[in-house]
Design a protein around this nucleic acid. Structure first.
Length: 207
DNA sequence: TCCCCGATTAACT
DNA sequence: GTTAATCGGGGAG
């Protein structure tokens, strides 16, 4: 199975985020189990974006975001959760795509082992920190090469057709929340938040 | 050094 | 709908 090439990631995060939907994240864990999942939810972040970790420039934590594309940026948050991103755009540009949700394909037993409390398989990877826990992703994978590495990579899948790509505001932000930079497969049951569709407008007043 | 709060989640009312 | 858990980043002093 072909991996997505470096060039796929060497574009703006706003282009890459919706196009990642439908492709497959693969992970070989320390037990040798190979896990696979179909991407159904992403968010774009960029350096001109007050909500992005790269907004304040290069820091030890965010150095990977400013490096070459096609690498994994992993960060720790809320004192207990890991989240993973795909680094995008040219080197020097602090941009990335947050991987927020996916549908399990292979390695279900290994995922369930890490989340024995989750009843519904569709919920195993429905959220950025749920996904990293089920995939055993932590700081040791920060900076992993998705194009040539053997711990985590991205295989070519079937892109989600544009009519099934939903666009919404990003989740959990207080700053720049309004940017419509979250992308979902509207047909998926593995979203971190249900896609509500276009907000219905109030019927025009009659007179 | 101190303080605030976060690209979250689960368990509440 | 609200909130506790838990810790590292970053700004203020």
């Amino acid at each position: 199975v072909a991996r997505l090439p470096r060039g796929f990631f060497r574009r703006s995060s706003l282009e890459v985020a919706p196009e990642l939907l439908g492709h497959v994240v693969a992970r070989r864990d320390r037990s040798g189990d190979v896990l696979r999942a179909r991407i159904v939810e992403t968010e774009a972040y960029d350096e001109d974006d007050p909500a992005s970790h790269s907004f304040r420039g290069v820091r030890p934590r965010t150095a990977v975001m400013f490096g070459p594309p096609g690498f994994l940026y992993v960060y720790f948050t809320y004192g207990m959760h890991w989240c993973m991103n795909v680094v995008t755009d040219a080197p020097g540009r602090g941009s990335a795509v947050l991987l927020r949700g996916a549908e399990p394909i292979d390695g279900l037993d290994a995922m369930r082992r890490r989340r024995p409390d989750v009843r519904n398989d569709a919920q195993l990877l429905a959220g950025p920190a749920r996904w990293t826990r089920a995939f055993a992703i932590d700081r040791s994978l920060d900076g992993a090469d998705l194009v040539r590495g053997s711990d985590v990579w991205i295989e070519r899948g079937t892109p989600v057709p544009v009519e099934h790509v939903g666009v919404t505001e990003r989740i959990g932000l207080r700053v720049a929340r309004e940017r419509p930079w979250r992308f979902v497969d509207t047909t998926s049951a593995a979203l971190s938040r249900r896609y509500a569709g276009v907000t219905p407008r109030r019927a025009p007043a009659r007179h």
